[in-house]
Computed example of a mutant assay.
Amino acid sequence: MNQGSTLFAQLIAHGSRDVLDRCIRRYRGNHRVRTFTCRDQFLVMAFAQLTYRESLRDIEACLGVIPDRLYHMGIRGSVTRTTLADANERRDWRIYADYAQVLMAEARRLYAGEALALDIEQTVYCLDSSTIELCLGLFPWAQYHKDAAGIKLHTLLDLRGSIPAYVRITGGSFSDKHVLDELAPEPGSIYVFDRGYLDFKSLLRLDHAKAIFVTRARRNLKTRRLYSHAVDRTTGLVYDQTIRLTVQATAAKYPVNLRRVKFRDPDTGKAYIFLTNNFDLPALTIARLYKARWQIELFFKWIKQHLRIKAFYGRSPNAVRTQIWIAISVYVLVAIVRKRLGTKLELYTLLQILSVTLFEKTSLEEAFSAPDYTTTSQPLPNQLQLFDL
């Protein structure tokens, strides 16, 4: 029940304060801090994400006109752009990375019962990265090419609820395939990724962990066909084969059989060749699993459009990482609230509602209650006709 708390305070309350405090103590975030604490920093940056603030000056101006409401938001320190800039520069970004990991785990637990478009009981992960371009003149530390700067956001996305299960921020030149080695494979889970992660030594590690992988084959991959299995060509399938690697170097890295499935998209006519270590799922399901990888592309597009992770309030590596991790925390926190309240509204709609109602003292349930619109096919009595029949 709402006890006079603002929507912002109610939203933040769905994330454990004790967990954030433990993360702050772990990295001594409040060491020698008197007024503007790490929690204040998190709340202000979350406010900036939810209200789409453009700059530190913008944040200061907006919060400066409502000093009496800062207390109800949970902010105890004075908010100035110099104080916030200093906090983003100096407070360890790992505080907010660890807190985001806890929120991600909680969200995945809530969405564990979500149905997938595919009739699969296993957990399905999609692994990919997206480059966030930066201005080379403002972020020289992020240079990865002669005239380009940027960072990579590597994400392992749980398709049940589109919740990140793993996130890592690296330089723009970091090779994608190295991220695959950092994952702790879950037995029985399915990992879907593109050719950028194709490393047979890493694939063997997934196979030994009893995890399933689905990826695309490179065009120059040398193999030997051992068996061919019948397929229904009317579905777009071309073949379903059991193969073995033939080049000595790659065969040494993956010395066991692979399954190769070729699928031709009926709409575009484009052919795709998939590799997997699973020999039980139908061949068409393998093709559909890889098609589901498109959801992580939509995830990257969504967060770049609706969160502040393309324009930054600070220029240092610590400030950039801090802003990204707090943005991820906000995304996951709204997803948690959406599930706990049982609302059917999309995350985009929830963010739009919050952006204009953060200081309202009503319950989240009331704010997120969608009105029931009804349509009628009967013309209005005073409606004029555009054309004579």
Rank of each mutant, 00 (worst) to 15 (best):
N2K: 00
N2T: 02
A9T: 03
Q10I: 00
S16L: 04
R17H: 11
V19A: 12
L20A: 04
V33E: 00
V33L: 00
F36C: 11
Q41P: 00
F42Q: 06
V44D: 05
Q49W: 08
L50Y: 12
L50H: 05
I59R: 06
C62G: 03
I66L: 14
P67W: 10
G74E: 13
L84K: 10
A87T: 06
N88H: 07
R90I: 12
W93I: 03
Y96T: 04
A97L: 05
Q101S: 14
R108G: 08
D119T: 14
Y125N: 09
C126W: 06
S130L: 02
L138P: 09
Q143Y: 11
G150L: 12
H154R: 01
L156T: 01
L157G: 01
S162W: 00
I163R: 06
T170N: 07
G171P: 06
K177G: 07
V179G: 07
D181K: 12
D181M: 12
R195Q: 09
L198Y: 03
S202C: 14
L206N: 02
A211L: 06
V214D: 09
R216G: 07
L221I: 08
Y227S: 10
T234C: 11
T235G: 07
L237E: 08
V238Q: 14
Y239A: 06
D240G: 04
R244Y: 00
R244M: 07
Q248L: 15
A249F: 08
V256G: 05
R259H: 05
R264S: 07
D265S: 11
P266R: 13
F274W: 05
P282M: 15
L284Q: 13
I286S: 04
Y290L: 13
R293H: 04
I296P: 04
E297I: 09
I303G: 03
K304H: 07
H306V: 10
R308K: 15
F312H: 11
G314Q: 11
N318G: 05
S329D: 00
V330A: 09
L333I: 02
A335K: 12
V337S: 02
L341D: 08
G342D: 13
L345M: 15
L350K: 10
L351N: 01
S355P: 13
V356D: 06
V356I: 13
L358P: 01
K361L: 00
E366V: 10
F368L: 12
S369D: 02
Y373I: 14
Y373R: 05
S377H: 07
Q378S: 09
L380R: 12
P381N: 02
Q383R: 15
D388F: 12
L389F: 10
